[in-house]
Simulated assay, not measured.
Amino acid sequence: MAAQLLVLPVLATGLTSCGDPIDDYCQSLKGHQAELTKTLGEGDTGGLIAALPVFEDLERNAPDDIAKDWKTLTTAISGLDTALQDAGVSPDDFENGKPPEGVGAAEAKKIADAATKVSSTKTQEASVRVQQQARDVCHTSLTL
C-alpha cells in the first residue's frame, strides 16, 4: 500500500497565545509514544482497543491536515470496542476468529462488521497517513 505524503500547510499567522497547533500535536504524540509502543505490543485487536483513549487524545490535538485520518481510525476502533462490549466479550475470547459460546448471530455479525471496518482499506490508508505525518512533521516513529 503506497503511503500518501501529506503536505504541511504553511501557517500564515504567527503563534497564538495557545501555541503552535502542530508543535502541540507533536509534543502530545511524543508524550504518548512509549505508552503506545507498550499498549500496541500487547496484541492486535486488544492492543488497538487498549490504545483507543490515546488515539482519541491525539485526534483531539491533531492539526487540520491529519485530523480526518485520526477520526477515521478512532471511529473504526471505537465501533469494534462497542460491538465487543455489547456482546459482553473481549478480543481475547475469540479463537481462530470464532466468537465464544453465548454470542448470538446478530452480535457476531455486528462484531465481524466492525472488525471489517478496522481492517478496511480506508482505515488502513488513514493509518499509513498518520504514521507518515508523524515521521515527516513530528520526526517521531509511530507504528499502528
Rank of each mutant, 00 (worst) to 15 (best):
I111P: 00
G41A: 04
D69V: 03
P99W: 10
A87M: 05
R135A: 13
T75G: 09
L52Q: 10
Q33Y: 10
L15S: 15
L144D: 04
A105I: 13
D24W: 04
Y25D: 05
P9A: 04
K30D: 10
A134N: 07
R129N: 04
L29G: 04
V54I: 15
G79D: 05
D93W: 00
G79A: 02
T75A: 12
R129H: 02
G102C: 07
L80S: 06
A67Y: 10
G46C: 00
T116A: 13
A112F: 08
D113A: 05
A105Y: 14
A108W: 11
T116Q: 08
R60Q: 13
D24Q: 09
S127A: 11
F55A: 06
T121D: 14
D113V: 03
P91A: 00
I77P: 11
G88H: 06
G46Q: 07
L15K: 15
S28Q: 13
V89N: 00
M1W: 12
Y25C: 01
V54C: 07
A115D: 06
I49E: 02
V128K: 12
G14A: 15
L40R: 01
T123V: 12
L84C: 06
E101H: 02
P99V: 06
P21K: 10
L142H: 06
P99S: 05
T143W: 03
A106M: 09
P99Y: 04
V7P: 00
A106R: 14
A34E: 12
H32F: 08
A87C: 10
L52D: 04
A67N: 11
A114D: 04
A126E: 03
A34H: 09
L144F: 04
C18Y: 15
I77L: 01
